[in-house]
């Protein structure tokens, strides 16, 4: 009985700590007009052309990052699983590096390595910096993307599928595109949503590479305004929540598909 009471206390304390900031943020975001609650702060945010530009910019970046991430991770995880199991420890070690090395160190390294007087002066042009930023995001998201894809590949019989596809005359690109990819679609989707959640509000990389994405925009508004930041926090929280919901949804469709077969 005491155990149950202690458990309830722990749970209620946790719920209070986690819900209060959300409630407070929402309440704060409604307080822009004096003496009444309104969605004025949200209206101002959505009408702000800087917001629209920054958000769109981050959306495009996230999309490019996801596509490049899939192109790099899927073939690697596939070949490691099928033919190069010896490489698995090295590949896993590399994919975990972004969790070990803080983002600020990685971007500091980029600034040193790709500065205007280097062999590959990516930071010289804005298109170059954009490329660097999205490749950096691919690196940041590598742990999530790789683990998602690897888990997906473990649930299917890669060897048999590949043999079947090759015996019908398909090369490995066709096998990858038409056989492997559709079979691990839900795993790739969950990797993609995690990448999206990581990239959309990222601050350190974007700010130090001087790109006007959503993260630095948030920080700028936070330094200038009172109620709009709360509205933006609510919006960001809803985006994160949506990403996690979509991941669960992607996982569930896999379960349902698995039950059918």
């Amino acid at each position: 009985m005491t155990k149950k009471i202690v458990s309830w206390i722990a749970f209620l304390f946790g719920a209070l700590y986690f819900l209060l900031p959300l409630i407070a943020t929402f309440e704060f975001s409604l307080r822009l007009k004096r003496n009444e609650y309104s969605f004025e702060a949200y209206r101002i945010v959505f009408a702000d052309s800087t917001f629209q530009a920054a958000f769109l910019y981050s959306l495009v970046l996230a999309f490019v990052t996801i596509v490049i991430g899939i192109l790099i991770v899927v073939p690697t995880a596939y070949w490691v699983q099928l033919r190069l199991p010896k490489l698995r420890p090295i590949v896993e070690f590399i994919t975990l590096l972004p969790l070990v090395i803080p983002a600020i160190i990685i971007v500091f390294g980029y600034i040193r390595m790709y500065n205007t007087s280097s062999i590959l002066p990516l930071t010289q042009t804005s298109i170059g910096t954009d490329t660097l930023l999205s490749l950096g995001y691919v690196a940041l998201a590598l742990p999530y993307m790789y683990r998602a894809v690897e888990t997906g590949l473990r649930t299917i019989d890669v060897a048999t599928l590949t043999e079947a596809s090759e015996s019908l005359g398909a090369g490995w690109v066709t096998t990858m595109w038409k056989v492997i990819l559709p079979n691990i679609k839900s795993a790739i989707l969950s990797g993609a949503f995690l990448t999206f959640a990581t990239v959309i509000g990222e601050f350190t990389f974007a700010s130090l590479l001087n790109r006007p994405t959503f993260g630095p925009y948030l920080q700028l508004i936070g330094a200038k305004r009172a109620y709009e930041p709360a509205a933006l926090a609510v919006i960001t929280f809803l985006i994160t929540w949506a990403c996690m919901g979509l991941i669960q949804l992607a996982g569930n469709t896999r379960k349902i598909a698995g039950d059918k077969s």
Partner: peptide, 11 residues
């Protein structure tokens, strides 16, 4: 990140 800071300022 940044939104978390906003939340705690509001709290």
């Amino acid at each position: 990140g940044v939104p978390l800071a906003f939340s705690f300022i509001a709290t």
